[in-house]
Simulated assay, not measured.
Amino acid sequence: MKKNAKSIDFIRKNWILYVFLAPAFLLVFVFNYIPMYGVTIAFKDFSPIKGIAESPWVGLKHFSSFLHSPNFTDIFLNTIKLSTFELLLGFPIPIILALMLNQIRRAGIKKNIQLIVYAPHFISVVVIAGMLFIFLSPAGPINAVLSIFIDKPISFMSEPEYFRTIFIASGIWQGAGFASIIYVAALSNTDPQLHDAATIDGASLLQRIWHIDMQVLKPTMAVLFILAVGGIMGIGFEKAYLLQTSMNIPSSEIIATYVYKRGLQAGDWSFGAAVGLFNSVISLCLLVICNFVVKKLNGETLF
């Protein structure tokens, strides 16, 4: 009772804070929670004429159809491979970049380098895809350089074996600089006296980075890694779809593009919703498992 009384008293004294919080809460409720009712179409044969409530209930029919479809294995593995490789290769790059930027002492040079590495993040995905098609075309500059060593130009965008490398490399180039901002901000809180003391004790640059800077970054790294694993199934639809050609489908077809084609283009709303819900459940499970593992190993946790 005393605890409840204290809570009520706190709310009365700080009611203005809850007034400021109300619009954000309302927006989240209206645009995130209310639409969850639409997830029920994954368990129905949805008809726009009948509506969600009147559409017949079919249970797990659409989930079973997806899991037993002949291309399920390829689509699922493509999604996992792209996401996993992008995480393993792309996650350390912003950390390394932030550590390198932290070693630059001249403010002017540091700002110019940051401007250069942050800039790709603000380029539209459509523009990035167009640039890749131009640069990697048989008549593009990449093949012009390779022509010195090979006789026949390579059609990078048509060969399935090149798609994964192109997708991941372009993603790292576009996002690594902007992703390093959080790590740069975390490193700015490092006490300079720690580095001074370590230098006096004879610690090398690498030793100071490992024992001081990396320790400062550890909590941030843990939280961002958990979030990255939680979003491993939510790999970007836009770039995968824009880079997709009829020739590289075996490597470029992922769950997101499959949902778009089957759910929106083909008008199979219930099937698309079922596949999307399946994707979300997998992401939630990965998030919870990763959070548990990181908490046990590192002591840091997201929730």
Rank of each mutant, 00 (worst) to 15 (best):
N4L: 15
S7Y: 07
S7R: 13
I8L: 14
I11S: 04
V19N: 03
L26E: 06
L26C: 08
V28L: 14
V30S: 01
N32W: 10
N32Q: 15
I34C: 00
Y37K: 13
G38F: 12
P48H: 01
A53Q: 12
V58S: 02
K61R: 14
I75N: 09
I75D: 06
I75H: 04
F76G: 04
P92M: 09
I96W: 14
L101H: 03
N102E: 08
N102C: 08
Q103F: 05
Q103M: 13
I104H: 07
I104W: 10
K111I: 04
H121P: 02
S124A: 12
V127H: 11
G130D: 03
L132T: 05
P138G: 06
V145E: 10
F149K: 01
I150Y: 06
D151M: 09
P153N: 07
P153E: 06
E161N: 14
R164K: 11
G171V: 01
A176T: 09
S180C: 01
S180N: 05
A185V: 10
L187Q: 07
S188Q: 12
S188W: 09
D191I: 03
Q193S: 15
T199I: 11
I200W: 05
D201I: 07
L205H: 07
L206K: 13
M214K: 03
L217V: 05
K218V: 00
V223K: 07
L227P: 04
L227M: 12
G230C: 10
I232T: 08
M233A: 10
F237I: 11
Y241H: 06
L242Q: 10
L243Y: 09
T245D: 01
M247Q: 13
P250E: 03
S252A: 15
I254E: 01
I254R: 02
I254A: 02
V259P: 03
V259Y: 07
F271K: 01
G272Q: 01
G272W: 00
F278E: 00
N279W: 01
V281S: 03
I282E: 05
C285T: 12
L286K: 09
L286P: 03
I289P: 05
C290G: 06
K295D: 14
G299T: 06
T301K: 14
